[in-house]
Computed example of a mutant assay.
Amino acid sequence: MASNTDTLVTVFGGSGFLGRHVVRALAKRDYRIRVGVRRPELAGHLQPLGKVGQIHAVQANLRYPASVRAAMRDSHVAINLVGILSKSGAQTFDAVVAEGAATVAKAAAATGARMVHVSAIGADDKSASAYARAKAAGEKAVLAAVPSATILRPSVVFGSEDQFANRFAALALMSPVLPLIGGGATKLQPVYVGDVATAVADAVDGRTKAGAVYELGGPEVLSMREIIQIILRVIERERVLVPLPFLIARFKAMFLQFAPGALKLTPDQVALLRTDNVVSDSATAAGLTLQGLGISPDSMEAVVPQYLWRFRKAGQFAQNGA
């Protein structure tokens, strides 16, 4: 029986937030890992995640099919993690999220490789959000090229390098008032990045159903208001939460889409918040969830104190109520 060391897995987008956790999970299972990234010279942080020679970064840009085909050469499994939260120049949702997924899938099909594609809960070709429509188009393209592919749809992902909990914590340092878009009623099911990475590795192991779409959520369904309240408790800050109607939020986002860092907000992100982002009843009933894979997900409250302490006045040594 072949061991995992005989299996070459090519991970596109492996140097990003989710990518580094996926690479670590695969390395622990002894796979050989090729990481396709636009700037291989900036992927050195991945090397300590595995044994000497186990992880190798190569140049690949999903907007250039030839580079993707080259990265896939002799690979047994392709993993596509590439995604963007907002468009910038040539990096559009259609080019990266939709066409990019198609490019990886076609390269995988040509190589005879299996494929794992990470999409997102909320992927919908009828959505008001261009991001969600592109995610749906990407899924369709992947299954058209590789019908046996596994699609993983996480809810909003949190972890030490995230652009979610860290963003709201940073905003709390900038302002005594935090807006609640749509009144903060939108429901999310935040999922820990390590749990998503485990699901990806399980899919590479062959533990998922061929051609199935899995929805990955954490143990709790929370409103945006509840999530922000958790973050404020963890960083020991009191802030005024002010409801902001969707119409006004969209108008403000027309200007904030050009803002830097945590202040950035796009009209498309406002559109996404109009719809709840939770695991569906049908996925739960079919066992197409983390729990269905035998993974017990970690909660936000259990994990975020491990990295949000840096936003407290006295850092990791602060005590609640101090």
Rank of each mutant, 00 (worst) to 15 (best):
T7M: 06
L8W: 04
L8M: 13
F12R: 02
F12A: 12
F17D: 07
G19W: 01
H21N: 12
H21I: 01
V23Q: 08
I33F: 09
V37R: 01
A43R: 09
H45R: 07
P48G: 12
P48I: 04
L49A: 08
V52E: 12
Q54K: 09
H56T: 15
A57I: 05
A57E: 01
R69H: 15
A70W: 00
R73W: 01
H76K: 11
V77Y: 05
G83A: 15
K87E: 15
S88M: 07
S88T: 08
F93W: 12
V96R: 00
A98S: 14
T103Y: 05
V104Q: 08
V104A: 14
K106S: 15
K106L: 11
K106P: 00
A107V: 04
A108T: 09
H117R: 01
V118Y: 02
A120C: 06
A123G: 12
A123H: 00
D124N: 15
A130T: 08
A130P: 03
A132Y: 08
A134D: 09
A134I: 05
K135C: 03
A136T: 10
G138L: 00
A141S: 11
V142N: 03
A145V: 10
V146W: 01
S148Q: 15
G159V: 11
S160L: 02
F164L: 11
F168T: 00
L171K: 05
L173C: 08
P176F: 07
P176M: 04
P179K: 10
L180A: 08
L188P: 00
Q189D: 10
D195K: 13
A199E: 05
D202M: 14
T208A: 08
G211Q: 10
G217M: 09
E220W: 04
M224S: 06
E226V: 07
I228D: 00
I228M: 14
I230N: 05
I230S: 03
I230L: 10
I230E: 11
V234S: 13
E238N: 14
I248W: 06
A253N: 12
M254A: 11
F255T: 14
L256W: 10
A259E: 11
P260A: 07
K264E: 03
P267W: 04
V270E: 06
L272G: 02
R274Q: 15
T275S: 10
S282E: 14
A283L: 08
A286T: 09
L288A: 09
M300S: 03
E301G: 02
Y307K: 07
K313C: 06
K313W: 03
Q319C: 03
